[in-house]
Write a protein that binds this DNA or RNA. Structure first.
Lengths: 189, 189
DNA sequence: TCAAAAACCGAGCAAGCGCTAGATTTAAGA
DNA sequence: TCTTAAATCTAGCGCTTGCTCGGTTTTTGA
């Protein structure tokens, strides 16, 4: 049984699953809850996915793909290390906070993935982190940052990813404001 | 049935639970796994705890208590905003990475807590964050930091808490090294 | 128009879950 | 020593879980 990976219907289902996984966590979300929210019966779910874990994988994969796309677009045609850092930070927060469901799930639920799903997603994550690594390396080369560059990357991504814990979309600050504030904090303004 | 909260045996059990919750996540850890690791039968667990969720709460509570203790001790007798910031960062990473089980559980599993457990733990968390807020406010007053102080607190704690994702205790860097590197990154060296 | 494919339903199975309750063993204190 | 309380065991209940499967409906495209 080979299931189509890119069907339109499947994309819809994945978006719904992302919302439920975000709201209650993967393990606490039952296939019956998922089916209910999708307007189908629980058995029908397994026509689209081989098992529950595959839904989780699809959620995270979709999130990663769009994050990489947006980051690539944000860096294109931007010159200068400082500007590139700020552009990447803005892109990161914009996906993270707009497409919040999928990204929070990605950050918190990787433990429930199978080995094979993991290896796919780790590849994508590494690719994304390399984007950051390059930009931070440029910053050090241009002399606008100092220190251990992998460490700076990790601190930066930590500060940014942590925003999902407290950011209030109804508040007065935009994701761009946050990106600028973080850049300023480490002297890149 | 009122269960004693501070028995020595209970503390041991909580430490074991912390390890399992850290390794596999709260929801994936069954009471039978917990009992096995504790060397008792699953039924006996409920002599010490009213329900599974109470074990989770105890794990997090123990972690928070020791974190607050260590932070208080680290700040005592330290003068000057920069030094106090660095002391607090060192204390934070030292507890976080040494008592890793409990703290990772605290960061990742709060969703499974009951309302009443939550309200207790949120109180402790707020108390701890206030320590940070004060120190960062001092930094701005002394002119060694600039910007929105709650935002700086959140970025800082994000960068620090994220270390649990990648820090390798067998590696060459100590928690103190990390604390110093972060301080340097934001100009507090 | 009509056959093939895709989507879905209904019913339910086997396993595992948190938790209970009564009996039994172990430890503690007077 | 003897009483009482704490800790553990044995056995299993009731429920939910992820998932299956044969059959039905809907959609698609030639």
């Amino acid at each position: 049984m080979t299931l189509p990976n890119n069907s339109k219907r499947r994309k819809e289902l994945v978006a719904i699953a992302a919302r439920l996984f975000f709201e209650q966590g993967y393990e606490r979300t039952t296939v019956r809850m998922l089916a209910d929210a999708m307007g189908i019966k629980s058995g029908s779910l397994f026509h689209h996915f081989n098992d529950k874990q595959e839904i989780l994988c699809a959620v995270i994969q979709d999130g990663m793909e769009s994050a990489i796309e947006i980051a690539d677009a944000a860096l294109a045609d931007v010159q200068g290390a400082k500007a590139r850092f700020r552009a990447l930070a803005r892109a990161h927060l914009s996906t993270l906070l707009n497409d919040r469901n999928a990204h929070v799930v990605a950050l918190y639920e990787w433990r429930s993935l199978s080995e094979s799903s993991l290896s796919v997603l780790i590849g994508m994550r590494d690719h994304y982190e390399q984007l950051w690594q390059q930009v931070i390396d440029e910053c050090v080369k241009e002399g606008v940052l100092k220190g251990d560059t992998p460490l700076i990357r990790r601190f930066t991504l930590g500060a940014l990813n942590w925003t999902v814990q407290w950011y209030d979309a109804e508040g007065e600050k935009t994701p761009d404001d946050l990106a600028n504030a973080l850049s300023a904090l480490i002297g890149l303004n």
